[in-house]
């Protein structure tokens, strides 16, 4: 498998969009840490970048890359290789390359300026979100033959995870304000990897506020070792399941 991965990584790292993405993250995070008077405010500004830009770039770039590679994939399939190997190689190549550019662009500044629990959690969340959205992109591209349709689909998916889902939850919260929804909220947060990552970061960043009111539930769940473990497991599921589904689809796909 590593036969292909290293070439794919090198190819992606030389991609103009990926270079621009890395540079953008780097400029963004350096300016955020240098312009704000305190570093924790810098982290706050970086939070939205991580929760919005990282998923967007990961999912759109990966989808385009997969469509552009369709002939290359055909060539690989005609070689003495398992399809599983090919698919996992492409996935690994994309995730390693995108995580690496996230790490260089945002991770290193975070480690330099804010090597705290919040910083580390942000870094972890950013990398996990990169991986998750690559997996979702792979699933979307393998199930949709048409490139334009596929890209449209992933942009909608991103919009859903980044914005619509939260709007929907807010709406439901107010519709059912009379019911005790705290416990349900923990479950609901598992339905969106962006939300789950955000809550994990919040637990580091706004721990005092989360300890109040709803906090009782959040503390009892996410505050404990097992809660954090479960949250991370859910995030892992968020890329394992799409990846597994896409692999199943790819194995029987006609090229």
């Amino acid at each position: 498998m590593k036969k292909i991965v290293k070439y794919v990584i090198v190819d992606i790292l030389r991609n103009k969009i990926v270079i621009a993405y890395t540079a953008f993250l780097l400029v963004m995070s350096l300016s955020v840490f240098n312009l704000e008077d305190n570093a924790s405010k810098g982290l706050l500004s970086l939070l939205n970048v991580i929760l919005l830009i990282v998923p967007l770039v990961s999912i759109v770039f990966s989808t385009i890359y997969m469509y552009n590679s369709s002939e290359f994939i055909e060539l690989l399939v005609s070689q003495p290789l398992r399809r599983k190997t090919i698919w996992l190689s492409l996935f690994s190549g994309l995730t390693v390359a995108l995580s690496l550019s996230f790490f260089i662009g945002a991770g290193i500044p975070i480690l330099l300026y804010q090597p705290t629990g919040t910083g580390i959690m942000m870094l972890t969340a950013g990398i996990l979100l990169s991986v998750i959205f690559v997996a979702i992109a792979l699933l979307a591209s393998v199930t949709t033959r048409d490139k334009a349709k596929g890209i449209g689909k992933v942009i909608l998916l991103w919009l859903y995870f980044a914005l619509l889902f939260d709007g929907l939850v807010l709406f439901l919260l107010f519709q059912f304000a009379d019911y005790p929804l705290e416990k349900a909220m923990v479950g609901v947060s598992a339905l969106n990897p962006v939300d789950l990552s955000r809550i994990l970061i919040l637990l580091q960043m706004d721990v005092s506020a989360l300890m109040g009111y709803t906090g009782a539930i959040f503390r009892n769940f996410f505050g404990t070792q097992s809660g954090i473990t479960i949250a991370f497991l859910v995030l892992v599921l968020w890329f394992v399941v799409p990846l597994w589904l896409s692999l199943r689809k790819f194995r029987s796909k006609d090229l």
Partner: peptide
């Protein structure tokens, strides 16, 4: 497939 050499109609490769 190690015994087959295949030349596709359109050869496109990762561009970088």
């Amino acid at each position: 497939r190690k015994d087959i050499g295949y030349m596709p109609q359109i050869g496109r490769y990762p561009e970088n």
